[in-house]
């Protein structure tokens, strides 16, 4: 009996040890949905084929909880993650991400300057703005103010959960010019004004967590309008859904690839960053998922029709560049007020 137990114990230990010691696949965390599908086709799969490696994907929903846990426990289970700018900077300052050696990045000169971050490589320019279902909406909305017009367009409206993006969009709907948004938001009166604007449609609001949700809700007519990411809407449009994205006062921001600190595959992950900077790869991605490229040579490789869908050029002439710095300082206080406002 005892001998059997010993045998079982030894083999169990051996099994765990083998698992720990064996090099694991490259693990990539993305935002799911058609965004990640396009990344798989444009980056993950061809990269893996070229290098002769295997990769595993997982879903990431924002924030730093997972990466912080990996750093605290030393069990780093992700090698690459695509994060928003504010999380990138906070994580970088706290040592949760590997620092990028920019001298070793061959395509550095082709990247827009906002893509060059101490711990991350900006890869995807994302537009956030008003979207609607053109089959059921009747008259199409013409500006952000129409999102708040419940007389003409009655029904539920959706926006991302939490205050980010929503306060900016509410203020622009209220007539604040894009270039003045963060000056206004830096004052308590500015924040009051944004909440007052949101108050006018509060009873009709529905919040989403994942970028795929507003697309489904629009298509199923659960909401009459939504704030959404541009490419999710365009991708759905190409699948035959009657959705439209309004290029008036959109907010644009950059998602960046980052490597969780002490990833066992960090050399490989670093090679992936270089791979993702390539203009041809980015064109491939933007064709499938019309988010903007960070390589300035990418648009030349795309057809004019495809390029017209991107958060770039005249599409973002009335746009606002999202301020990570503002939200890093104010997210806690404003989120608390937001939660309070939502529950009241």
């Amino acid at each position: 009996m005892v001998r059997h137990l010993k045998l079982a114990a030894v083999s169990a230990v051996a099994l765990f040890a083998a698992q720990a010691a064996g090099a694991r696949d490259l693990v990539i965390a993305g935002w799911g949905g058609n965004y990640q599908d396009a990344q798989r086709d444009a980056y993950f799969q061809p990269f893996a084929t070229e290098k002769g490696i295997k990769f595993t994907e997982t879903t990431y929903l924002g924030g730093l909880a997972e990466v912080k846990t990996m750093a605290d426990t030393g069990d780093v289970t992700w090698d690459l993650v695509i994060v928003e700018g504010a999380d990138l900077q906070v994580g970088c300052d706290e040592g949760l991400f590997e620092e990028i050696d920019w001298d070793a990045v061959p395509l550095k000169d082709q990247l827009v300057k906002d893509a060059i971050q101490p711990c991350g490589v900006g890869n995807v320019v994302i537009g956030t703005g008003l979207a609607y279902n053109k089959d059921t909406i009747g008259e199409a909305p013409a500006n952000l103010g129409d999102f708040f017009n419940t007389e003409k367009w009655p029904g539920k409206r959706a926006m991302r959960t939490g205050p980010k993006f929503n306060l900016e969009l509410a203020l622009m709907a209220d007539g604040v010019k894009p270039e003045e948004i963060y000056t206004v938001m830096n004052t308590p009166e500015g924040i009051d004004r944004a909440f007052a604007k949101l108050d006018t449609i509060k009873k009709d609001l529905q919040f989403w967590d994942a970028g795929a949700q507003p697309v489904e809700w629009l298509a199923a007519n659960n909401v009459v309008m939504t704030f959404s990411y541009n490419a999710r809407i365009t991708a759905a449009k190409r699948e035959g859904k009657p959705l439209e994205f309004l290029w008036v006062n959109p907010i644009y921001s950059i998602d960046a690839w980052a490597i969780p600190a002490n990833s066992p595959n960090k050399e490989l992950a670093f090679e992936f960053l270089n791979y993702a900077n390539d203009a041809a790869r980015q064109a491939e991605f933007s064709k499938k998922m019309p988010y903007g490229p960070t390589n300035i040579e990418t648009p030349a490789l795309m057809s004019p029709e495809d390029a017209a869908e991107l958060p770039a050029g005249k599409n973002i002439e009335t746009g606002l560049f999202f301020s990570d710095a503002f939200w890093i300082d104010h997210n806690d206080a404003i989120s608390e007020r937001w939660n309070n406002w939502v529950t009241q």
Binding site: G62, G63, A65, L205, F207
Partner: peptide, 18 residues
């Protein structure tokens, strides 16, 4: 928004607020 329960906020604090 008015039907989220306490667990929602617990998850929110872990995930978004760290």
């Amino acid at each position: 928004p008015g039907d989220q329960m306490l667990s929602y906020y617990i998850a929110d604090f872990v995930r978004k607020g760290l």
